[in-house]
Nucleic acid binder design. Structure first.
Length: 942
DNA sequence: TCTTGAGCGTAC
DNA sequence: GACGTACGCTCAAGAT
């Protein structure tokens, strides 16, 4: 399962270095614009210009003007502008003087670089850069990748260094002379074909880049020599044979310099691709965005030329380099609806062809179940462009038993026709909540399709705006597209009137179903570019997107649960509950429902006269555990019995019965992890929730013993020790806590010694308990009142402890204040790895709500940082296990713990591999420590 | 009869 | 008012 994405989305390079494919229809053509060349020319060609706010913009204006003109004159299926992203590259390591005398860019140009990137995005053109690589290298990489896919490539640049890339399907275009450069032009310039250009340059050198070459040898001589000797190495090897003594001497003396020069001028075409080739697909600019950009920079002539000026549209700008000639320019104006229902194979094939030509498609499935692992595929929907979508019914039935099934393509035939598209490494599939559809389609009964490569708009939204709002498709559609999609309930009805989707008439099914991939594709166009702007692209590509197949595999694997054991526990609990209930009734003097807090409150407070005020806005008595504990301490026996009843009732209903109902035919329980439901980046687990299985007391532990391994296997648990406190020591830079973690000391004892000024040997249990409470309380933003309540001491005394804590650890207080300020200023706080965690209510007038938001702001980075660390471990561990030749499977994640099923023979190797990955996944200022255990059950693995 | 929210308790 | 993040169960009241 993980394999389908691994090679693709993971490193950004979806293009395998396989045989060239048959070119898809529609002439795949990638235009790569050398952004640096454009910038340089724009800057020097135009006199200084500034915006009203004083920002220099002459290069931005020139760049935008040139780009607009170019897009107006050329069109292609794919396009990108490539920028340099480093002064320090591998070339400086080879030869320190490389480009050493290049002056720093002029001061007025520096603030314009960012604006130029904005301009590129505003025109709807992808921009590519990669730290440590020059634009030329990236151009080489993308040319190679696209050519391997059967496409052709045009490089727009006048940089002669790029001429080495010219070949049959790769040409250059000189942007000044508007002249194509093919092999003859290269031959004319260098006297050799393109594949020898680098060697000529290696001999001749290049003063502008400080490439030394061999003194006294120019391009002409170099070409002659290479033609005679074949290649540089042969020439250097046989230099002694050269007749002219001077030339011979020079070559012999400077042979090594020539070799170094060759490495400097040879472009590196094996760099990772920062963006998948598919995302470079040409698209029309969003008029609103483009107009906003042009207006912001006061580019009125361009606004006017594009028909975007004041009182602009109705005159829509013409499509610029649009992939489909008949696509209108503004996605917001393309109507929803009017979708095709595909019921014959010929039509389906045309949709498959359209999808391949588009390179990016929206995809969604319709099924008969929310449970991905159980669902039968009922239909598939595709979108090939905004507004162009279809529904392909596969297993629709008549509305009732008397009505015949509607005509549709036999499911197997349709699936086989779609498989090449859905598995095509050159077609990016965009889904919303991809994990679900991946699992449905991977199921053999639904075709066993391995969808790749993919993007997930839910995860894109989550990477951008966790905590700001939900990430369901309907919500995002209304938020970003101002469109309310047809709801599922509208189509199927609700309650007992609900009909299975397979029975919905095809016209209504199509109107609903095809809208989903249409919305998804439009959301992708809107949201994907924002990842870069929010500095969230790496988070999305390297963590969130990779989690999808990892979690799918974990869900599919499931964990074995001993149903008979659960049944025995349930019987035991049931018998004891009967006794406890009778005892409650006896102590109350009457029968009542012990499970009803309302009735219990009446018994305890109205009838028995115990004291304990009201709570909550409903005015009801609170009867929670802390209240009952207090009452029990007063000497009344009933609360104690109720507490015991509550505990067993909880275990029986939620864990014994709830869990038993979830055991699948394979004897295992398959949870559903949600990837985008928390505000901090944590996962959540549902149906069943396997992240809150009891562990803290003996009765609860019995449940955990029912989680077992297959025969011949053990369960292995690996959990991060004190990860959030380590993050506290890391983020707040607390030297003494760092030292304690480095030495492996007991962190709470160390804290106790420091805040209570005790000799470490004299820290007793109570002091340690208080220190532990405050350590965790800090991470939760706890107040003196809360701490006092927790410790059972007056708030004043708790205040003293907190003051002592902050006096000892001023860095922590500073960090807490900084986080609150950050949230107030920006509306979000940054996690330790840069994720934006949005905080609701931080600007609320209501002080209660605002205080709550401040606690969230304090807690979110710690919780979110820990979540990110374990996610990184999760995307690496399966691969590491595989590469170690192990069959160990990762089954569960519980926030700071991973659970594996390990063949007995692999225990040692798996433990070592897992620990190594988990501990090495982040470099903090304190070490990460992972505790590993194993046993026949989850209880024993701890 | 079904849906919804409160109250409670489980985990990290 | 007072400790962050989740999910699921039962009860009870209100909607259908």
């Amino acid at each position: 399962m993980t394999d389908i994405i691994d090679g693709a989305a993971l490193d950004g390079s979806v293009i395998p270095s396989a045989e060239p494919r048959t070119p898809p229809p529609g002439d795949p053509h990638l235009i790569l614009i050398d952004g640096s060349g454009y910038i340089f020319r724009a800057y020097h060609a135009l006199p200084p210009m500034t915006r009203p706010d004083g920002t220099p913009v002459n290069a931005v204006f020139g760049f935008a003007q040139m780009l607009e003109k170019f897009l107006n004159q050329h069109s292609s299926s794919h396009i990108a502008v490539v920028f340099d992203s480093a002064r320090q590259t591998f070339r400086q390591e080879i030869y320190a003087a490389y480009k050493a005398h290049r002056p720093e860019p002029p001061e007025e140009l520096i603030p314009q670089f960012a604006l130029i990137r904005e301009a590129t995005e505003a025109f709807g053109v992808a921009q590519v850069e990669l730290p440590g690589y020059e634009a030329d290298d990236l151009i080489a990489c993308y040319a190679k990748a696209f050519e391997a896919e059967g496409g052709r490539v045009t490089i727009v640049s006048s940089d002669k260094d790029l001429m080495q890339l010219v070949r049959e399907r790769v040409i250059m275009l000189d942007p000044i002379k508007q002249k194509p450069i093919r092999e003859p032009e290269v031959l004319e310039k260098f006297g050799v074909p393109p594949n020898k250009v680098a060697e000529v340059q290696a001999l001749a050198g290049d003063p502008t880049d400080n490439v030394p070459g061999v003194p006294g040898i120019g391009i002409k001589t170099a070409a002659t020599l290479l033609t005679e000797y074949g290649d540089l190495e042969s020439l250097l090897a046989r230099a002694g044979e050269i007749k002219q003594p001077k030339r011979r001497e020079l070559l012999l003396t400077h042979a090594e310099q020539a070799r170094i020069s060759l490495r400097l001028v040879t472009l590196d075409c094996d760099a990772p691709l920062p963006l998948p080739v598919e995302t470079l697909v040409a698209r029309s600019p969003e008029p609103v965005r483009l107009a906003a950009f042009l207006a912001e920079n006061n580019f009125r002539t361009l606004l006017a030329r594009l028909g975007l000026g004041d009182g602009a549209p109705p005159n829509r700008p013409r499509p610029v380099a649009a992939p489909l000639a008949d696509e209108p320019a503004d996605p917001l104006e393309i109507p929803f609806g009017n979708y095709d229902c595909v019921t014959d194979l010929e039509t389906l094939k045309t949709w498959v062809a359209k999808g391949r030509a588009a390179g990016v498609i929206g995809l969604d499935t319709e099924t008969n179940s929310l449970d991905a692992l159980a669902a039968d595929l009922v239909g598939i929907c595709l979108a090939v462009a905004p507004g162009k979508a279809c529904y392909i019914p596969l297993r629709h039935a008549g509305a009732d038993l008397l009505t015949e099934s509607p005509a549709q393509i036999p499911a197997e035939a349709a699936i086989e026709a779609l498989r090449p598209l859905l598995e095509d490494p050159a077609v990016l599939k965009v889904l919303h909540n991809a994990k679900y559809d991946l699992e449905v389609l991977a199921n053999p009964k639904n075709g066993g399709i391995q969808v790749a490569p993919l993007d997930d708009t839910m995860m894109i939204s989550y990477a951008l705006e966790a905590g700001a709002h939900g990430h369901g498709m309907d919500e995002l559609s209304q938020l970003h597209l101002r469109h309310k999609p047809i709801s599922f309930d509208e189509v199927t009805g609700t309650g007992r009137a609900r009909i299975p989707f397979a029975h919905v008439p095809l016209d209504r099914a199509t109107a609903y179903a095809a809208e989903d991939p249409d919305v998804t594709l439009r959301l992708w166009h809107t949201l994907k570019p924002r990842l870069r702007e929010a500095r969230a692209l790496a988070l999305y590509e390297q963590v969130e997107r990779r989690m999808i197949p990892v979690l799918a595999a974990m869900e599919q694997a499931g964990v074995k649960v001993d149903g008979q054991e659960l049944a025995r526990i349930g019987t035991d609990f049931g018998e004891r509950l009967v006794v406890l209930e009778a005892e409650c009734h006896r102590l109350a003097g009457r029968a009542f429902n012990v499970g009803s807090p309302k009735q219990l409150g009446e018994v305890l407070f109205d009838e028995m006269g115990l004291k304990g005020g009201k709570k909550g806005k409903t005015g009801a008595y609170s009867t929670d555990a802390s209240v009952l504990e207090d009452l029990a301490a007063q000497g009344n026996p009933l609360p104690r019995v109720v507490l015991q009843h509550r505990q067993l009732a909880k275990l029986k209903s939620t864990y014994v019965e709830g869990l038993t109902a979830q055991i699948a035919a394979d004897g295992r329980v398959h949870t559903d992890y949600s990837l985008a439901s928390t505000s901090t980046g944590r996962l959540a687990s549902t149906e069943p929730n396997l992240q809150n299985i009891p562990i803290r007391n003996e009765e609860g532990m019995k449940i955990r013993r029912a989680f077992v391994a297959e025969p011949g296997h053990v369960l292995m648990s690996a959990d991060y020790s004190q990860i959030e406190l380590r993050l506290l020591a890391h983020l707040a830079e607390v030297p003494t806590l760092r030292e304690a973690f480095e030495k492996g000391e007991d962190i709470h004892s160390r804290t106790a010694a420091e805040i209570f000024h005790l000799d470490p040997a004299n820290v007793d249990k109570e002091a340690r308990r208080r220190a532990k409470t405050i350590n965790f309380g800090i991470i939760y933003g706890m107040s003196a009142f809360g701490l006092g309540g927790r410790l059972g001491i007056p708030a004043g005394e708790a205040r003293g402890i907190i003051d002592a804590y902050f006096a000892q650890y001023p860095g922590i207080r500073n960090e807490m204040e900084r986080l609150k300020d950050e949230a107030r200023m920006k509306g979000y706080v940054l996690s330790p790895f840069g994720r934006r965690l949005w905080i609701q209510d931080i600007g609320a007038k209501d002080p209660v709500r605002r205080a709550g938001a401040e606690r969230q702001a304090i807690n979110a980075p710690f919780q979110g940082g820990a979540a990110e660390i374990i996610k990184r471990a999760m995307v690496r561990t399966p691969r590491a296990l595989r590469e170690a030749g192990l069959k160990t499977r990762m089954l569960l994640q519980v926030h700071d713990e991973l659970v594996f099923e390990v063949p007995e023979a692999e225990v040692e190797a798996a433990g070592a591999t897992i620990r190594k990955v988990m501990e090495g996944v982040a470099e903090l200022r304190v070490p990460l420590l992972v505790e590993v255990g194993q046993g026949a059950s989850w209880a024993e693995a701890h």
